[in-house]
Amino acid sequence: MEHSVQYIGMNPYLPILLILIFGLALGLGVSGVSFLLGPKKPNQHKLEVYECGLPITSTAERRFSIKFYLTAILFILFDIETIFMYLWSAAFDYLGWFGIVEIGIFVATLAIGYIYVLKRGALRWD
């Protein structure tokens, strides 16, 4: 005998809303407890900028090259492709030929962007 449970009137987005509320409450709660119980004794050494364990000699000497930030942004952009391709592979049977064309367009766009980045020299670390 088959038992089926039907949820009448339940919104399908309710679990997502509950997870969002729980995550927000947990984050704010932990941050609040840390703020209330954490030490608050600022001094000159705590307020100094700390970078890679090296003392700062001057502000102009310790600046990062803009290439560092560009490389980090490019990593994030090209890393998103992994998420998209994973979701696409999970829905491969459902999407059919439309999914194959869609991922082909996506990979072509990604390849064009990668070639553009290579030609501009954004990945060269000089």
Rank of each mutant, 00 (worst) to 15 (best):
A111Q: 00
E2K: 08
G9C: 05
R62H: 13
I66D: 15
M1G: 11
G9Q: 01
G32F: 06
L74W: 01
S34E: 13
I73F: 10
G99N: 00
I56Q: 07
I115W: 03
V107Q: 01
Y94I: 09
Y86T: 11
E48P: 06
F98S: 13
L14Y: 08
Y116N: 12
A108G: 04
N43A: 05
I19P: 04
E61Q: 12
I105D: 05
I80V: 12
Y13I: 12
Y7A: 15
I105A: 15
F92M: 06
M10T: 04
G23R: 00
Y13A: 15
W125I: 07
E81G: 14
G32Q: 05
P12N: 15
L47T: 10
V49H: 10
H3D: 11
C52E: 12
V33G: 05
I105K: 04
I115H: 02
G121H: 02
A60T: 07
A90R: 00
E2I: 09
Q6A: 15
T109I: 10
L14E: 07
H45C: 13
I83G: 05
I16S: 12
I8R: 13
I76P: 06
E102M: 14
L87I: 09
E102I: 09
Y69L: 08
L70H: 03
A72Q: 06
I21D: 07
T82N: 00
L95G: 02
S65M: 03
C52W: 05
T59L: 15
N43I: 01
H45W: 08
G29M: 01
I66Q: 14
S65I: 01
F22Q: 01
L54R: 07
H45T: 15
A90K: 01
V30Q: 09
G53I: 03
L17C: 14
Y50S: 12
H3M: 12
Y94C: 04
S65H: 10
T82P: 00
M10G: 04
I76C: 13
A91S: 10
G27P: 05
W125R: 02
G32Y: 06
M1E: 05
I105Q: 02
H45Y: 14
P39A: 12
G53F: 04
W97R: 03
L28M: 11
I112H: 00
F22A: 11
L26W: 13
A91E: 06
I16M: 13
A90D: 04
L37R: 09
F75M: 07
R120V: 13
D126A: 01
L47V: 06
F78L: 10
V101G: 09
N11E: 15
L95Y: 04
E51S: 14
E48A: 15
W97N: 11
I16A: 14
L47Y: 05
Y114Q: 08
T82V: 04
I112P: 01
G104P: 02
L110V: 06
L123P: 03
V117F: 01
S34P: 02
I56E: 08
L77P: 00
P15E: 05
W97M: 10
F98N: 10
E51K: 11
T71G: 07
P15D: 06
Y94V: 09
P42G: 11
L54I: 06
E2V: 12
T82G: 04
T57P: 00
I80K: 05
A72M: 08
I80T: 08
T71H: 03
L77F: 09
L24I: 06
L87K: 08
L20N: 03
I115K: 03
